[in-house]
Simulated assay, not measured.
Amino acid sequence: MIKFENVIAKAVNGREILVSVVPSKKMQSTREGFEWVEVGKKVLLQSGVEIELNLDGRSFYTGIHEMFRLESRVC
């Protein structure tokens, strides 16, 4: 069973949501064929929607003008 790290994300207005940090995987071509490789992290909302992190590695948008920030950078 795969376990994900649950963290709290906070908005500027004080709103908090619980999200899970999940790996972002892409298909890569190799000499032996294709394989899945981890290329970063995403956040998984409680509704089941996966959202890519911004370039800073700790913030994401759930909608227009709705930016949430994680406590620390996700590696």
Rank of each mutant, 00 (worst) to 15 (best):
V21E: 01
C75Y: 06
G14T: 08
K3F: 05
R69D: 05
M67F: 04
N13H: 11
N13A: 13
G40N: 03
M67P: 03
D56Q: 06
G40D: 05
S20G: 03
L70W: 03
E5Q: 14
H65I: 09
E50L: 12
I2G: 06
N6M: 11
L70S: 06
V21I: 15
V37C: 06
K42M: 15
M1C: 12
V22K: 00
A11F: 05
S20Y: 08
G33D: 11
E16C: 09
D56I: 01
D56V: 05
S20T: 13
F34A: 10
S72G: 08
I64Y: 10
V7Y: 01
S20H: 08
V37Q: 06
I17R: 07
T30M: 04
K26N: 13
E38N: 14
G40Q: 04
M67T: 08
K26D: 02
T30I: 03
Y61K: 13
L44K: 05
T30Q: 06
E71F: 09
I64K: 15
D56T: 09
R15C: 02
I8T: 15
V19C: 02
S47P: 05
F60Y: 04
V22E: 02
S29Y: 04
M1I: 06
G48I: 06
M67A: 11
V49M: 11
G48L: 08
W36P: 00
G57C: 06
K26S: 02
A9I: 05
S24T: 12
V21Q: 10
K41E: 00
G63N: 03
M67D: 05
R58E: 07
S29D: 04
C75S: 15
I51A: 06
I8W: 03
K10V: 07
Q46F: 03
G48R: 12
G57A: 11
V43L: 03
R31L: 09
V37E: 01
E38L: 03
R31C: 07
E5M: 06
R15A: 14
E66C: 14
H65N: 15
G57D: 00
V7C: 02
L70K: 04
I8E: 14
V49Y: 04
P23K: 11
E71Q: 10
V19M: 01
L53I: 02
F4H: 10
H65A: 13
V12M: 07
L70V: 07
R73K: 13
V49N: 13
R31Y: 01
P23S: 02
K26Y: 08
R15N: 13
M27Q: 12
S59C: 10
V21G: 03
Q46W: 09
S24W: 13
R58F: 10
K42Y: 09
F34N: 12
G63T: 13
I17P: 14
S20I: 03
H65L: 12
S24R: 15
E38C: 01
K25Y: 06
F4W: 10
C75A: 14
Q46N: 13
S47N: 15
